[in-house]
Design a protein around this nucleic acid. Structure first.
Lengths: 304, 304
DNA sequence: CTGTTCCATAACCCCAGGTTAACATCAAGG
DNA sequence: CCTTGATGTTAACCTGGGGTTATGGAACAG
């Protein structure tokens, strides 16, 4: 390959940021000398860059009349846009500097919907108080999609209701959460302190599908009573059960993390025997760990 | 002054267009090698520019994990804006090239209101047909403001109803226009072929102030009949007379250029003795003459 | 006529950004 | 286990853009 391919030079429009800046300054200040002053460089420097730009563009930007520069039609056509673009570049430089001064940050969190509806809001509130300038991107998605984005690197960490199994993903269990039975407050079972598989005989069940991590343990709990867990409505995420239970379609066996009593007309009772689900936080070890991972971990621990 | 002032280097954020382009390409393509390919330069070139950018910014944009580049939080924060700004620069380069290929142009015209209401629309229509890619800026302003802008260079040419007297302004008379008497079509004088100073005795006059170029000639015309031109309502621009005449406030003595019969209920009759006003086109000889001056002159001549 | 003001030119310097070539890693596979 | 290929880094080198100072020429005001 050539050292510096010119391609005839007419086709290649260069238009540096510097050339833009100098053109803009000359237009604004009205003369090369004034522009040089306001840019704090020597007058010949400005003059040379201008000539260079003109030769690259292939047309004059200024006529030299009476020893003065007079902008041509082409200059007028360019100026408006050039000015705007230059200002945009300035804004970008500012952003770059601000980032460098650690005055701004970014934490991209992926979370499954139940987490988003329970511990996350409080944890984020706490986190934002400690780090007000850190932007937070929150992606509420199913576990599968979250795992994918974590591997790609679109998110920095995930908080889910089951550990993520993937090559480079490192998970840490933050807390155990007991499975609860969620029902309408008018339900006869609402009077009981706990709900057993026996109590649920003949009642339509709303719960996770067989692919979920807790399903085997729930099945075993029913099995110990000589019963079979017969799920009539399968949900992918526990919050999806709310309208179903409210509508009287059945009783839900779901995580106890979400504040179910916060939904109008619903109550939750512990399921017995106790079946535990895990709140886990995961990062991708193949990616740089966020500066804000530890601080965020601290915040979320306080609420578990 | 120093050769190349660094100022400690931390304060000066450089951020070339080129650095921007390379950063964007690496983010988009996912690796230095791929970016180098898509930019058609060697891979070490990209690597070096990236390192240079990082050292200037003062923070890493990528972590090197497993021999691969992994964007850091800072890179993610920058990318969105960097991408947008880069695209803006591309648009600007395109504009610069388009201008260079003479596919686009600009003609800035200043005209007094009567001109704008008469010959200009047709002339511009013709001009735009011949030069569809040339943008036209039309400033309809009083003579004084127009002259000022012509001298500053904010407009390329002016078309006015009197010649402009200023140091570097070159005017050319395009046509003579007879002064007309404009009245309501119900006016008794509407039956006459011409209107003389005699006819106007006792009628309130609407006309130009004493500072206008034609005023002395109109005064002289009245004087020849032993009369005095007594202007009851003074206007700066002839089109301003329309609502006044319509409202029955008097008869207007104004230029015959505007199609007065085009206004509802108005008619115009030649004023006798004939008093002429001049349609003049002017340019500033201290400024580069527009490429489109001659073509435009051709267009406007066809309608005079 | 003469000083001032503005722009252009010349001669020089430095560094960003390009090249090639050689070298270090890591993933993958026989 | 060692080779192979892909990726990123480093080194040595060259060019050109953009900076400097010094100087010259053109236009205008006094």
């Amino acid at each position: 390959m050539e050292q510096c391919p010119h391609f005839g030079q007419l086709l290649v429009v260069v238009m540096n940021a510097r050339q833009l800046e100098i053109f803009r300054a000359i237009m604004r200040d009205g003369s090369v000398t004034a522009a040089a002053n306001s840019l704090a460089v020597s007058q010949p420097a400005v003059s040379k860059v201008l000539h260079h730009l003109e030769s690259q563009l292939g047309y004059k930007l200024f006529e030299r009349i009476g020893g003065r520069l007079v902008p041509t039609m082409e200059a007028h056509l360019l100026y408006e846009d050039a000015d705007r673009v230059f200002r945009e570049i300035e804004v970008l430089k500012n952003l770059a500097r601000t980032i460098g001064e650690r005055k701004i940050g970014l934490l991209r969190i992926g979370a499954s919907p139940p987490i988003t509806y329970s511990v996350l809001p409080q944890a984020l509130l706490k986190f934002r108080q400690a780090h007000p300038t850190v932007k937070v991107h929150l992606h509420a998605l199913p576990k599968k999609e979250i795992t994918e984005q974590l591997l790609i690197g679109d998110i920095d960490l995930t908080v889910t209701l089951s550990t993520i199994q993937a090559p480079t993903v490192r998970s840490e269990v933050l807390a155990g959460v007991r499975v609860m039975a969620v029902m309408r407050d008018t339900d006869p079972l609402a009077d009981k302190a706990e709900v057993t598989p026996h109590d649920l005989v003949g009642r339509p069940l709303i719960s996770y599908g067989n692919r979920a991590d807790v399903s085997p343990m729930l099945d075993e709990a029913f099995d110990r009573f000589g019963l079979v867990r017969d799920v009539s409505i399968e949900i992918s995420s526990s919050v999806g059960a709310v309208p179903l239970v409210s509508g009287g379609l059945g009783i839900a066996l779901v995580d106890g993390l979400v504040r179910w009593s916060g939904f109008q007309g619903l109550v939750a009772r512990p399921f017995s025997p106790a079946v535990m689900m895990n709140v886990a936080i995961s990062t991708n070890s193949a990616r740089p760990v966020s500066r804000f991972f530890r601080p965020f971990l601290q915040c979320i621990r306080e609420f578990l």
